[in-house]
Structures are given as C-alpha cells and as structure tokens.
C-alpha cells in the first residue's frame, strides 16, 4: 500500500488540492448568488450553474480515484467514457437490422481491444487497429447481411462515430504508455495537463463569451461560440497551461505553444461535433450528466485535442 502511495508524484496532491479549493470557491459563489432575488430566466441560468459545478465535483472525484488507483483504473475509466460516448452517437444515428452485429462488435470487441492495446503498450497496433482493421471488418460484416438500403451512409456514420468516440478519445489515456524521461508516474501528470487545459479552455470561453461575446463565429453551428469568447478564453487557458509547465517535460514557452494547440483543437472538436449534432437534429448528445448534456457534450473537445497532443509529446519528448 505504501509503495503505491510513494509512486504517486507529490504534484498530484497539490493539483487536486487546488482544484478542490477552486471548486469550493465556485460552489460558495453559486450558493450566495442563489439567495439573491432573480427573475425566472436568471434563476434558471443559476440553477444550471449549480448543476454544472456539481457535475464538476463528481468528475474531479472520479478522476482523482482513477489516478490514485493507477493506470489500469484510468484505462477502465476512459474505456467507459468511450462506451458511453459511442452509445450516445449510435442512439442518434439511424441504423438497420443489418447493422446489429457490427455495432455489437464495436461495443463489445473493438473498445476493449483498443484499451488493452494501450495497457499492453503496443503502439504499432494501437495506432492502426481502428483506422485499418475495424474500418475493413465492420462494413464487410454489414455487407454480408445483404441490406443495401443507405449502406454507404450507414457505415460511414458508424465509422465516423467509432473514430471520434473510441480512437481519438483513447489517445488521452494512451499518454500513459509513452516512454518519458524520469519516473513512470509522471505520465499521468501529462494526462492531467491535457484534461486541465481542455476543460479550462471550455470554461473560460464560456465565461468570456457570456461577458464580452458579440461576434458569432459560426451562428448556425454553435450560437454560443463567439470571437471574443474564443480569444479571451483561449488566451486565459493558454496562460494557465503555460503556468503548469513544471508538471510536464516542457519549458514554459513550449508549454504555452502546446497549450495553444490544445485550445485550438478543442475548439474545433466542439464546433465539429456541434455541426454533426445539428445535422442529425439534436440539441444535446445525451442526458447522462446533469447540466452538461451527455458524455459526448463533455468530451468533444478532448476527442480532437488528445491525438494531436499525444503526437506532439511522442515526437518531441519521448526517449
């Protein structure tokens, strides 16, 4: 038991401690706000704020437990996140009886295999398993069912969902298998760094957008995304990321640049998945997380930021 505790870098306790303090402040502010009189619209937006903060408490608690229990639990956690995200995607995507077997395989075979490949550190297969083998296998099985109605659009949608919710998302915990200089436990700090920058970017863009947002970037796709929110929130998140350089192998300057890349990718992820969502006529992907919509509403930016961050670290910082 003591061995396990020693393997956890000291920084973790500082990081999670700071997050608890931050969220504590947020909860207190929300509680004070809730006492002030308000009209119906304001009250609703405050209730939404409380829901969001409460969901953050749960997410931080789950993450802390997964990190403390080690890489296997972290992988299980992300595998479940992929499972729920794919479940939301497939629910909103039309399917026909011929798709049942490939879909079952995607959930019960492709997801476990992808995460076991990370756990056993087989980068070579991990990187091609879904884009090559799942890509070829799943439509073949569907074709054997001889149902040609909308065949291309059905299989294309399923492939796209699998790529985003499983392949892309799995690059976040895949950071744990990279051979970095220094102790093993420090890989988890990189995962923490990625999640922190992505989520701070989302929160800050939301806050800056509410305060200063005027010019809509893509009004049809996502009415809440504004130039002011993106620039203000993006700069704030980049600053936070730069300030966190000490938990990474990056210099402060590199950390700022890498955070900026994460911010841009996260923004594009939110925008693109919003476009997908709207093209199939939904407002939220699901109802899992109160105040936040579904799993995919919460992880869309991670899906896009994780693979790029993973490759930056792999190319420039692994030994």
């Amino acid at each position: 038991m003591i061995e396990i505790w020693r393997a956890i870098p000291q920084e973790f306790f500082w990081l999670f401690g700071s997050l608890v303090v931050l969220l504590g402040i947020a909860s207190s502010v929300a509680a004070i706000l809730a006492r002030r009189p308000a009209d119906e619209k304001k009250a609703a937006s405050r209730a939404n704020l409380v829901e969001r903060i409460n969901a953050w408490w749960v997410m931080i608690a789950i993450l802390a437990v997964a990190f403390l229990l080690g890489p296997t639990m972290t992988l299980v956690l992300f595998a479940l996140a992929s499972f729920f995200a794919l479940r939301e995607f497939i629910t909103l995507t039309p399917s026909r009886p011929g798709d049942r077997l490939p879909l079952s395989l995607a959930f019960f075979m492709i997801i476990p295999v992808q995460f076991v490949l990370i756990g056993t550190e087989r980068y070579g297969i991990f990187a091609i398993f879904i884009p090559v083998y799942a890509f070829l296998l799943l439509p073949s099985i569907a074709a054997l069912r001889s149902d040609i109605e909308d065949f291309l659009s059905r299989t294309a949608k399923q492939q796209w969902g699998l790529m985003v919710t499983v392949y892309c998302l799995s690059h976040a915990p895949a950071l744990l298998m990279l051979p970095l200089p220094g102790e093993r436990g420090r890989n988890a700090l990189l995962l923490f760094y990625l999640l922190l920058v992505v989520q701070m970017s989302d929160v800050m863009q939301y806050v800056f957008g509410k305060l200063f947002g005027k010019t809509k970037i893509a009004p049809v796709v996502s009415p809440s995304k504004t130039v002011e929110g993106f620039i203000g929130g993006g700069l704030a998140a980049t600053g936070i990321g730069a300030a966190m350089w000490w938990i990474t192998p990056f210099t402060p300057g590199q950390s700022a640049a890498i955070s900026a890349v994460i911010v841009v990718m996260g923004f594009l992820g939110g925008l693109t998945l919003s476009a997908v969502k709207r093209s199939i006529g939904a407002k939220d992907w699901g109802v899992m997380i109160e105040g936040h919509g579904g799993m995919l509403d919460r992880t869309d930016s991670i899906c896009f930021a994780a693979p790029v961050f993973f490759h930056i670290v792999r190319f420039f910082y692994t030994t």
Binding site: T91, S95, R100, F107, V287
Partner: peptide
C-alpha cells in the same frame, strides 16, 4: 423508446443505446 433497436425479437446480443 429505442429498445426495439437495442434487442429486437430474435436478436442475441444487445446493441447499447440510450433508452428513455
């Protein structure tokens, strides 16, 4: 809703879907 897509008559394995 959706359960007829998840595990219809004659199917062995369910497809995980969000059902309300």
């Amino acid at each position: 809703d959706n359960l007829h897509r998840s595990l219809p008559k004659g199917a062995l394995l369910p497809v995980p879907l969000v059902c309300t």
